[in-house]
Structures are given as C-alpha cells and as structure tokens.
C-alpha cells in the first residue's frame, strides 16, 4: 500500500464524512416533511460566515482573535445560529408549501437558496470574495506507518459522533419518537397530542445544525469560505441523499461515501480530473437512479395493483 493510495483513502473518508453531514439533513427533512428543502446546502454553508463574524467580533472585544477557545466558541455559536436560521426559514417561507405540490416547494427553496447566497454576498463585508478559513486542527499523527492529518481524524470523529447522536436521538428519546410519529402519519400524531408544527421546527433545527457542522468542516477543508460554495456542495449533498434513498439516514451516508469516493478517484486517476469530477459524479447519480429508481435504500415508489 503506497503512501499516495493511503492519502487518497484518508481524503475519501474525510470528504465522505463532510458530505454525509449535509446529506443526512436533506434526508431527515424529506422523511419528516415530505418536501425537498433545496436550500439546505445554502443554509449549511452560512455557518462558516457566522463563525467568522463571531470570531472577529469576539476578537475585537477580547483583543485576541487567534486563541483556540475563541475559535471554538465561534464554531458553537455558528452551529446554533445556523440551526435557528433553518427554523426561521420554515416559519417565514417553507411552511406555506406544506400542502402545495412537491415541485412548488422545490422551486421555492431553489429561489430561497439564491436569496441566501445573495444575502451573504451583500451583507457580509466583502462577501463576493473568498475569505480565509482556518483549519480546525493542524498537524499529523502517524498511523500504521503513514502520517494522517489530525484534521481528517477530527472530521471523521465529529461526524460519527454527530450522526450517532442523531440516530440515538431519533430512536431513543421522546423527541425522536415524536419526529418518527409525525413523519409516519401527521394526523394520527396530532391525535396523540403531538404538535406537528413544533416537531417540524425541531427537525429544521437539528438538520440545519448538523448541516452547519458539515459546512464548517467543508470551509475548513477548502481553507476558505465562499458565498458560492453552496451551489456545488448543496447539489452533491442532495444527490447523496437521493442516491441513498430519500428519508433513509444510512442511505444518505452510503450515498455520500459513494460520491466522495468517485470524486476522489476521478481527481486522482483521470487526467484533468478536477474539471471533470462533476460529470462523473452526476453520471453516477443517473446510473444509480436508472437501476434503483428510488435510491439504494429508499422505499419503493411504484404502486402495484
């Protein structure tokens, strides 16, 4: 096993974990609300900008922007604020499309994504330009004779923890059971004294917060925050969720790992692969959907008579 190969594997797992954090949100929101929240990627990638604002604000108050606690606090605040933005979008826009045809909600959230991107561009100082975003952790650790960046380990650990916590929450807590109940049958849940509106807001918060973690990792991975990152990342996260089967959390993770794997492979093997990566990724998406029309682990959609 050569070092280069090992590096690519590490790269693959890192990228896959980041995509999975975003894809899980798409899948969760679809499972509960039955709509595609196409701007979920844009919401997720608001987080790096929130983090930068908080860090610079704290830095000017404390006079020390570079210290690790300030940085960490910035990240936590960014995650919480992004979760709240998700809830806010539901309250202002998305909840009006609960009973509308699915395509209406899809187009509305695409437009919402445009609005979010443009808002960053205009409201964030110098929003059109890329902003440097620090690596969460620097340095390497030697594992099985090869150096592994600590950053990758951190990404994998935090992603596993977040998604594990999400699974635990869905399966073992009261809120999780309520979310499941609402996703199965909204009216029956209401009869059981569960308020669907509250559950929807909770779902938006959880999905957006987990997406925010993914957004922060992505910016950290790329070394910068850009307002238009979310176009590609959102599309890839959405594709991963659909390839895995909308509404299925394990599916979203498998889809993310597949897409990240192909992405890494193409960039490593195909000449000039970086410019063709999206072509390969989306051809894979089409191929998977040809043979599995409702995703790898999705519920089958064809009615039989």
């Amino acid at each position: 096993m050569s070092e280069l190969f090992f590096q690519q594997v590490v790269n693959w797992i890192t990228l896959g974990s980041i995509y999975a954090l975003i894809a899980v949100g798409f899948s969760l929101l679809f499972g509960v609300l039955n709509i595609i929240h196409f701007s979920h990627g844009d919401v997720s990638l608001l987080a790096p900008f929130f983090a930068l604002s908080v860090i610079s604000a704290l830095g000017s108050v404390l006079g020390d922007a570079g210290s690790f606690p300030v940085f960490l606090l910035g990240l936590v605040v960014a995650i919480a604020v992004t979760g709240c933005v998700g809830v806010l979008l539901d309250l202002v826009v998305i909840q009006r499309f609960r009973k509308a045809p699915a395509m209406m909600a899809l187009v509305a959230t695409v437009a919402l994504g445009i609005v979010l991107r443009e808002l960053i561009r205009h409201l964030f100082p110098n929003g059109s330009n890329p902003h440097a975003f620090p690596r969460l952790v620097d340095g390497d650790i030697v594992l099985a004779g090869f150096p592994v960046p600590l950053f990758s380990l951190a990404v994998v650990a935090v992603s596993t923890l977040s998604v594990g916590a999400l699974f635990f929450m869905l399966n073992n807590t009261r809120l999780g059971l309520h979310i499941k109940a609402v996703s199965q049958d909204r009216d029956a849940a209401r009869l059981m004294a569960i308020s669907p509106g509250r559950i929807f807001r909770a779902t938006f918060f959880v999905a957006s917060a987990i997406g925010a973690v993914g957004g922060l990792f992505f910016s950290s991975y790329a070394g910068m925050a850009r307002f238009d990152f979310s176009i590609d990342v959102g599309l890839i996260g959405f594709s991963a969720a659909v390839v895995g089967g909308l509404g299925s959390m394990p599916g979203a993770i498998i889809g993310s790992l597949m897409i990240a794997g192909l992405d890494t492979l193409v960039q490593a093997v195909v000449p000039n692969g970086a410019s063709y990566r999206l072509v390969f990724v989306f051809l894979l998406v089409i191929c998977v959907l040809v043979f599995r029309p409702s995703g790898l682990l999705g519920r089958t959609l064809v009615e039989k008579v």
């Binding site: 989306f282 998406v285 040809v290 029309p293």
Partner: peptide, 25 residues
C-alpha cells in the same frame, strides 16, 4: 422512465449539470 417526483427531478438536474460541465471542459 422509471423514476418519479424528486428522483426524476434529480435525474434532470444531473443531466443539466453534466451537459454544462461538458460544454465547459
């Protein structure tokens, strides 16, 4: 032919992205 709704939407989105990327490269 076999896909529907959101899945079909994604197939068409993917087709659009592939065409755009190919034209671009």
């Amino acid at each position: 032919m076999r896909t529907r709704d959101s899945y079909l939407a994604l197939v068409t989105i993917a087709f659009g992205v592939v065409v755009h990327q190919l034209l671009n490269n």
